[in-house]
Each structure stands twice: as structure tokens, then as C-alpha cells.
Design a protein around this nucleic acid. Structure first.
Lengths: 200, 200
DNA sequence: TCGCTAAAGAACATTGTGTCTAGTATCAGC
DNA sequence: GCTGATACTAGACACAATGTTCTTTAGCGA
């Protein structure tokens, strides 16, 4: 993991990563071309390929950094489903990046990566829970939670992240733990209790 | 909605749709080119563009058909979260198609479309439930459920759809309604009840 | 200061897209 | 069965983006 010491290298990599995000915010991942990136970064074409095999590799290197910040944040706030709040807060404080990454115009690749990143975080948090079941059941639960969180996150960001992270986190965790019935008093046969949320 | 009566048109459209699915199974949506499609369908290049503006439009027309079969199936099996079993069974009886569509190599577009299709089905089913809450809450719940189902479906298909649909459906519905705690006796403070699933 | 290497610039082959043409076949309806 | 309409074919085309290769220039570390 010995990072290059040459300033030119670091500068170029940084410029390219920033340009990618900037372009993603502007027109989405899929629509962004290598040409767009190097134009914005003001970097030669050959230089790009000297550092990254393709657009995807560049994205990967950026997501790697993201993953590291997230793991760090999660480590500081552990507990059952602790990843949730950590992630929502991180998303809010880096809103443009996250909107670009998770938003409407992002690529399949991006979403897959993010979701498996979330799954890894969920997996870590599951150790704080007393899980009784087979590995397959555990796996299913992890996927279920990761998918649900991803959807909630996307929904939240698409709305401009107006609701406070704490509240989204609370709703999400209750949904996961107690289910729809516990959250909003749903019954299959249309007899339900009243909801009890402050805002929204 | 008056479909063309000319056999040549129907034949060509069918050939192209089939070729798309066939290619998706083979190398995924993203990697499939228009050239691949028309080669496999044995159709001229100009002909392709006479029918569809691009690869995406072709996909859309195929997904439209899929949506119709699903709505039909859902109508025959209503109830709380009734879409779930209907969809799992449909997926199993059209396994290659679904694996191609939902699997690892599919595009963002495909996944987005499927997920919003699921969301629509969830929305329909929600009317069978006594939902108490604001429209925003309802929306969040729909997204939550659709995302979770999508993840479960993907997981199931990636495993080769070995588990019977009825069982996956049962687990999923219990997770949605009662949550992780209800399903596997999870507690945040590591005191839990025993699980009670037959297989897996 | 000097040697090393990153980066610029530009040309290139390659692949895929979407359009257009003129000629050929196949269809629906009389 | 004809016949007029129109769907299809084959090929060429302009265009855009990718990824490679080359030489020249600039900047870095020691």
C-alpha cells in the first residue's frame, strides 16, 4: 500500500477523482466519458490511462476512499445497525457526492458496489446482534437489510435529504427490527394502531 | 394500443426481443451491442432502427410485456404483499430471463426499471393493508419494501433459485411485517428466542 | 544541478452507433 | 392470383468514444 511520494502523481490522481465526481454530479456516471474527465481535470489522455485502466477503475479507487471513511465512522459509533446513522450523516455532509453516486443517473456498477459496501457494514453490525440461524438465513437477512437501506437512502437523497438523519435512522431501524406492523400498526386484515411519528 | 397486423412486423419485433434476452443471458445487458442483437436475430441493421430507437427502447418493450404478465398474475392472487409469491413463481418458471435481468451483469437501467415495477406492485398491495400514515410515510414504506424484495430476489436467483418460492415468500413477508426481531428472535442486547424455519 | 520519470500533445486503429440509400421480398386486400 | 404498399436487406457513411503509441517537454527528488 506504499503510496507514491511524487507530488505529480498524487496531484494527477486527485484531479482525476475530483473530475469524475464533478462530472457525475453534472451528468451521471454512465453519460460521463473519459474525454469529459480529462478535459475537466486538464490532464492528457495518455496520462489518464497511465493511472487507470478505464473509467471503472477510477471509480473504484474513489469508492475505496469512501469505504475507508465509512468504516472509520462506523467504528466510532458501533451498536445494532449502527452503520445506518453513520452513513446517513456522512451522506448529508457530502450531499453532492452521494446524490451523484446513488441518484437516478448512476450506473449499475456504482449501485452494486455501494450496496455490497452496505452489506459489509450490515454484516459487521449483525455481530452486535444475537443472531440465531443458519449462515444462509444470516446471509438472507443481510441482503434484505442492505437492500432496504439502499432504497431508503435513495429515497431520502432524491428528496434532497430534507428529513434529519436521526429521524430517518430511527424509522429505518424500527422497520428492520419490528417490521411494518410494529412501525405503523399495519394488519393484514385492516385493523391497525395509530402511527406515532413526529414529522414527515 | 392497436398492434400492427403485418406478420413481418410482429416476426421482427419478436426476433429482436428474443435475441436481446438471449444475449443478456450470455453476456449481460451492458456488454450486449446492437450488432450482437441483430446478428442473433438475423435482422438488418436498418430494420432494427426502424422498430426501436436504441437498445434501451427494445428493453423497455420487453419489460412492458413482463409487467403485463406480472400484473395479470398478481390480480389472480391478491392479498397483503401478494405480489411477492406471484413474482417469485414467475421468476422460477422463467429463470433464465430473470437471472439475465436481475443478475450480476445487468445494467442500472434494468435494475431501476424492475425496482420501480416492484414498487408499483407493492403499492397496489398496500391498498389491501390498513395503512395509517402520511403519503410520505407510505412512500417510504413502499420504497423500503421494494428495495428489500429486490435484494431478496437477487440473492435467491444468484443461488440458482433452489429454495421453494413459497418459503422465500413466507420469510420475506414475515420480515416485512414483524421485522428481524419477529423472524429470528433478535434483540439489540443479545437476548433472543430460537428460530423456527424448516429448511435452509 | 542532474538524472529520472511523469505528463503533454497528437496521431492512430478499433469498435460501436445511428442514418441513409437503392434494390428485393413479402404482405394484405381486392 | 394480382398488385400496390411497405417491410426488409445490404452496404456505405459520418460520428463519437476508446485505448495505444510515439516524441517532446516539464517537474520532481536527491
Amino acid at each position: 500500500m506504499k503510496r507514491s511520494t511524487d507530488r505529480r502523481v498524487q496531484r494527477t490522481r486527485q484531479l482525476l477523482q475530483d473530475a469524475l465526481i464533478s462530472m457525475m454530479i453534472e451528468k451521471g456516471y454512465e453519460a460521463t466519458t473519459v474525454q469529459d474527465i480529462i478535459d475537466r481535470a486538464n490532464v492528457g489522455r495518455a496520462t489518464f490511462y497511465a493511472h487507470f485502466a478505464d473509467k471503472e477503475t477510477l471509480l473504484t479507487s474513489r469508492l475505496e476512499d469512501l469505504r475507508n471513511s465509512l468504516s472509520e465512522r462506523q467504528r466510532q459509533a458501533p451498536g445494532s445497525l449502527g452503520f445506518s446513522l453513520a452513513m446517513l450523516e456522512h451522506a448529508r455532509s457530502h450531499l453532492p457526492v452521494w446524490s451523484a453516486i446513488v441518484g437516478r443517473d448512476s450506473g449499475a456498477l456504482v449501485l452494486q458496489r455501494i450496496q455490497s459496501m452496505i452489506a459489509a457494514l450490515v454484516d459487521v453490525d449483525m455481530r452486535a446482534l444475537a443472531f440465531k440461524g443458519t449462515p444462509a438465513q444470516r446471509d438472507l437477512a443481510v441482503q434484505y437489510i442492505a437492500g432496504a437501506f439502499m432504497a431508503v437512502l435513495t429515497w431520502w437523497l432524491d428528496q434532497g435529504a430534507k428529513l434529519p438523519p436521526e429521524e430517518v435512522d430511527a424509522i429505518f431501524r424500527r422497520l428492520v427490527m419490528q417490521g411494518v406492523a410494529g412501525e405503523w400498526g399495519l394488519r393484514a386484515n385492516s385493523k391497525g394502531r395509530a402511527p406515532h411519528l413526529k414529522s414527515m
